[in-house]
Design a binder for these strands. Sequence first.
DNA 1: CTCCTGACTCAGC
DNA 2: GGCTGAGCCAGGA
Length: 129
Amino acid sequence: MVLRKKKSSKLTNIRPSGKKEDNFFDLVYEVARQIPKGKVTSYGAIAASLGAKSSARMVGWAMNGAGGTRPKVPAHRVVNRNGMLSGKHHFATPDAMEKLLKKEGIKVKDDKVLDFEKHFWDPMTLLDS
DNA sequence: CTCCTGACTCAGC
DNA sequence: GGCTGAGCCAGGA
């Protein structure tokens, strides 16, 4: 999956070195895009699937530019390990995240995903096959 | 180059 | 059982 994202809008060029965007960020973006509709996952799960379970923060950080990448990354499907919409505050509007989730059939209550493990999607699924 | 911050997570108290 | 501190990597000032 080669990223064709050549220019990152808000973020400074992820890799001004001229190399492909083989950063951790892009890996996160790719995985995030693979999240099936109506499913959610956690930052740690994504990080773990990338081999950097300790870098859960980086996953969230990467999401910072999710809205500027193309195709867009469904960051709203990514929540913390508690299923809490930790990143909702970073969306265009605080309600955008849960609104999108509800729209996909995921129930959100008190900024938390109900039946989180039921809607949980493990990134490893792509690798396991 | 050094220091701080950040959409997380775990361990300790 | 909730709060705090520390670890994690990367980027901005």
